[in-house]
Every structure is written in C-alpha cells, then in structure tokens.
Write a protein that binds this DNA or RNA. Structure first.
Lengths: 253, 253
DNA sequence: AATCAGGCCTTCGCATGCAATATGTCTCGT
DNA sequence: ACGAGACATATTGCATGCGAAGGCCTGATT
C-alpha cells in the first residue's frame, strides 16, 4: 500500500509534459513559475498511475483511497477526477463513483482515427505556417528526446516522449484549439500505451519520426500524412483486450 | 442581481442537450433517469449564461458569486468550473481565479478548422456505417427541430438546436471518441454563437442542413463535406472581436 | 431452496470553515 | 509628487464533517 503512495507521488514529478522546460521556450531563461495546485498533481498522478498499470481499465477509482495515498483531502481529488472525466479518462456515474475508461479494440481504433484526423490537420496547418525549416526545430528536439528515451531503462519514458513528440506536432500547427483537444486525447493515449508497454512492436520506432520530419522539411504534405497514417495505424492493430485480461491475471508482469 | 439568479436557474432547465429525450432513443420508452448532480447543472448554467451574454469573454467568474446565484455551495461550482476548464470554456490561473474563454477572430477561425476536421471525419464514418438511409433518421429529426426552433421567439433556441444537429451528426458516426471530443467543442461553440445571436447572417440556414442530409442519403461523401465546409465556413468570416466590444459597451442590447 | 425484505456499511455529494494567495489602498519616507 | 512598504480586503485552495444514495449481507418467508 505504501508502495502505491510512493509510486503515485514519484510519478507526480514526471508527468506527461515532463520535458516542457527542455523543449519549450529556450530563449527566455526564467519561465514564469506557476504554482502547481494539488488538483493538477492529483490528475497527473492518476493518469501516471493508469499508464503504469496501477489502475487497470474499468477499475474503480475510490476518491478516499486516492486521497489517502496522495496524502491530501478528497476535494482536490474530486476536482481532478472531474477534469479527467471531461477528457474521457474516467467515466462517472452519479452516486456510484468513477471508473477508469474501458478499453476495447474498437474503441482504440476509433480513438486512433480521431487522433489521426487531428494530427493530419496539424500537419496541414504546420506546413501552412510562415517561416522556414527552423519552425520544426522543437519537433526535432522532441524526436531526439524520444531516441534518447528509447535507451533508458524505464519503459515508461519512451511513451512519455512519444506523447511529447506528437504534442509538439500539434503545437507547431499554431492552432491552440487543436493543441488543447490533443492534450485531452494524449492522456487517453497514455493510458492505452501504458498497457502496450512491454509489447514488442507496440512501441513506435524512431525512424518514423525522422521520416515525418523529412517530409515536413520538404513541404511534402501528402508524404507527411502518409507517414502519420502508418505511424498511428500501428497501434490500431494491437489487441488491447487480451492485453488487459492478461494484465489483470498477472498484475506484476 | 436576482435577475441573474433567475436567469441562471431558468437556463439550467434548458441545457445544450435540451432535446436529448426527443431526438434520442425513441424506442425505449423509459430511458434510465440519471440523477442530475449540482455539478452538471452548474456547468450547464454557466455555459448557458455565457451563451446568453450574461458572461462575456474574458470575464472573471467568481466562484462565490456563481454559487450564491445558483443557491448552492462553492464546491460543486468549483468542480463544474474544472470540468469546463478542460473543455476550454474557462481558463484558470491558480490563486487568481477562472475567466471565461477569450474570443479572437483568429481563435474562432482556428476552432472552426478543428471542428470542420472532426465533422468531416464524422461524415466519412457515418457513411461507412452499415445500414440504409434510416441511419440518418435522428439527424432528420434534429433538422426538423432546428427548423422549428427558428420560428421560436427565443433567439437562443436555434443555437441550441444547431448544436444538437451537429452533435447528432457526430453521434451517427458511431465513434464515441469523436462524439466526446465534439461535445467539448460544442460548449465553446455555444459561447461563441451566443455572441452572434442577433447578428443577421450569423445564424445558419436550414437549407444547409437539408443539403447535407441529401448528400448523406445519396452516399455522396464529397458533396456532404463540401456542404459542411460552406456551412461552417460561414462563422469563420464573422467579426467576433468587435462584436464583443460592442456587447461590452451595450450589455442590454 | 430460492427469493425478497430489511438493515448495515461503504462511498459519494455537498456545506461549512479555515489557511494561503493576490490585489487594492493607505501611509510614510524621500 | 512619487514610489516603496504595509495593512486590509477579496478570493481562491484545501480540509473536515454530515447527510444521502447505492451495494451487500443477513435472515425471514414462501
């Protein structure tokens, strides 16, 4: 039990956007420090817990339990859960509590189609943005970070880096609505990917990032989109349902 | 002040999904009644208030004030605001409070591009669904409801019906992720449309719904998407910034 | 033996209260 | 007069507590 506490707290320090400082605004030395409220930390801890397999899909998320583990009261936990609810990570039934999102193969496939649609738009708008190839520098940094994360011992790091790479793609599109929407999806993806962690072939390859970057540099919209289709389509072919079932039988795996 | 109370409470009864019972599952007589918590009602009341012009873009949303107006405590209001935050309707700065989303012409245009991307996917997936033309019956109902709402005295009704029509479009796509994402956008759209209420040309025309339905019936994907582009592009050409400025000078208008 | 009713227990929903932070104002010194 | 510092107020963030709804177990009844 106390392991869960440590785990959640530890993860809270390495959230989805863990590389924000590195890949973000490099020029401004002192980026404005925003006070991190319990709510955000709780939300990130819950997502991280799900991505880590501490919570499995369709598991019940008991407020009091999470609050105890995080060492805070139920109120910020509730708010965090609400936040996650409208992002589709948890589903709430009044007076019955919250559960982690269910994962079905159909659901993941549908999710990936939506995601592909958003990222296709991101590619189009990124290419339509003014500026030269230096627009994509941050994307290059993210790709490098991903390659680096692949070498790390922690299998969760590539997942985070992968999320960050695609977040950058949406960011360079210059469309704030697009980015916001994608951030919501990213958390769902983090949960899904958490399952596929140890699956060979589940992790994306760095070559695909490079290929995407090359197509972007060349202004090759169709090529970039084709790369995306391939890159994202990979996940839609995995069998998440049996993965969940296995994980439920052997939680330690 | 007590006007605000009444207004918010009244609107809480006619939320964005106000026609859910009518356009929803017709066959099952008794659809399961879910207890409506204060949080949902508060969220809908806030969105409705924004769509009504009670709150203008970038206005501060003081928890205690809203709680007083709604006659509830601050806790559910906070949760509602969190919910809206992750949908982009309000932006929160820790210890400084929540503000309603800002509206800029660029922002609306970007939002509309994202929306168009989602609805394009909706059309594609809806056409790919099995079944005959009866798949779109609910869409037809929504279109009829919109036509009916145009005749109503309340200028807010067509906006709600318009939202509902497009929500149906996403629903018939059979893609739950797509629908969920769109629902989040819908609330932003409700706020934006609230501004354009009295603008001639701001309201959509029913003919476009009919044209879309015809194209869908014919299985004409390109035609349907072209209609959507036209239909949605209409909004991107409005000048929301001066609209907000005018509204702020003459709130009673 | 199966079923249904009743009570208990868990958990959620919301209210109240206090601490923490920001902001406006006022005074004081230069 | 102008700016800096300190106080006062407004508002948010979080904790605690109580009532309410749902689930479960037990036991009585058919």
């Amino acid at each position: 039990m106390s392991v869960t506490v440590r785990d959640l707290r530890a993860r809270a320090g390495a959230p989805v956007g863990f590389m924000r400082a590195g890949s973000g605004v490099e020029l401004r030395r002192l980026l404005p420090v925003q006070p991190r409220t319990m709510v955000e930390q709780a939300a990130e801890a819950i997502v991280a817990g799900a991505a880590r397999g501490i919570f499995l899909p369709d598991d019940r998320l008991v407020e009091a339990e999470i609050a105890r583990d995080l060492g805070i009261s139920r109120v910020p936990v509730r708010e965090a859960l609400r936040l996650l609810e409208s992002q589709g990570i948890v589903v709430s039934t009044p007076y019955k509590g919250m559960r982690l999102m269910r994962i079905s193969n159909r659901g993941v496939a549908a999710l990936m189609r939506v995601r592909l649609s958003l990222e296709t738009l991101a590619v189009r708008e990124a290419l339509a943005q003014p500026g030269g190839r230096e627009r994509f520098d941050r994307l290059r940094v993210a790709a490098a970070a991903f390659a680096y994360a692949l070498e790390a011992s922690d299998p969760a790091l590539p997942v985070l880096a992968e999320v960050e790479f695609h977040a950058e793609l949406c960011r360079v599109s210059g469309n704030p609505s697009l980015l916001a929407l994608w951030q919501g999806l990213a958390r769902q993806l983090a949960v899904v990917w958490g399952l596929a962690l140890r699956l060979q072939g589940g992790l994306p390859q760095n070559e695909e990032h490079e290929a995407l970057l090359e197509a972007l540099d060349a202004g090759d919209e169709a090529g970039a989109i084709a790369t995306l289709v391939e890159h994202i389509g990979r996940y839609a072919r995995l069998d998440f349902e049996t993965l969940v079932a296995e994980r439920r039988r052997a939680p330690a795996m």
